[in-house]
């Protein structure tokens, strides 16, 4: 469904990705793991169109996304949650969710998606009139994921959803991600929390210094010697 083909990308003089390739099939939950600065976030931003690659291609159902601006890519069914959630703190929870459904197609399905988000995160319904700035870190992450779901995405890109959260909350968020995936949303998850991510996913890629260095099922990678040494010691 989603194919990333030999991508080179970077910022100014600094090349961050070197020939990165990966693919995600319909309904899969795939993780992209690796150390800080390995190029995980850049890979996601290339898919969502925020960073345009210097070489390579990104395909959704065989159609190239390179010429599409990010707001069009969202409407094509790819929704990204940025690192830290980046909710609109000055707007209410409800307004944040409404903006998630800004695209024309999503706007029509707003009520239905809102129900779904509130059933996944009942906490958001309780706080819908509050400013997003008054939410706790965990609630913000929920809001960010909920907001991304409001566009009714086929693929959800998650950038470090566990970052800065207490272990209990991390578990809860990961359970929600599995649930969302079960409901039929394909998920590409970027994580530094390698063990948790690998336990969660069917398949994973390992990225280091801007290059993909390993691929396999979560379990297989967990027993992979270099991965164990590098991340799980």
């Amino acid at each position: 469904m989603l194919e990333v083909e030999r991508i080179d990308a970077g910022y100014k003089d600094l090349q961050a990705l070197w020939g990165v390739s990966l693919r995600v099939e319909e309904g899969e939950l795939v993780a992209l793991v690796g150390p800080n600065g390995a190029g995980k976030t850049t890979t996601l931003k290339v898919v969502s169109g925020l960073v345009k690659p210097t070489a390579g291609n990104v395909l959704l159902d065989g159609r190239s996304l390179l010429k599409e601006p990010p707001h069009r890519i969202v409407e094509m069914g790819i929704s990204q949650v940025l690192e830290g959630g980046r909710v609109f703190t000055g707007l209410t929870v409800m307004e944040n969710l409404e903006l998630g459904a800004f695209g024309m197609k999503a706007r029509k399905a707003k009520d239905q998606n809102l129900k779904r988000v509130f059933s996944l995160f009942p906490r958001l319904e309780e706080r819908k009139r509050q400013r997003a700035g008054t939410l706790s870190g965990g609630e913000r992450q929920m809001l960010a994921i909920g907001r991304a779901l409001m566009s009714n995405p086929r693929i959800l890109l998650l950038d470090e959803p566990s970052f800065g959260l207490a272990p209990l909350l991390v578990e809860q968020i990961f359970r929600m991600i599995t649930e969302i995936n079960k409901q039929g949303v394909t998920v590409l998850l970027v994580e530094q929390n390698v063990r948790a991510a690998l336990e969660l996913t069917q398949r994973a890629y390992v990225i280091e210094n801007g290059r993909i260095v390993g691929e396999g099922s979560g379990e297989a990678l967990l027993s992979f010697e270099s991965v164990r040494r590098a991340y799980l010691a």
């Binding site: 707001h71 069009r72 969202v74 940025l82 909710v87 609109f88």
Partner: peptide
């Protein structure tokens, strides 16, 4: 940036 990801042009 976050606004772009809301399909806002």
């Amino acid at each position: 940036e976050a606004a772009t990801l809301m399909a806002i042009d």
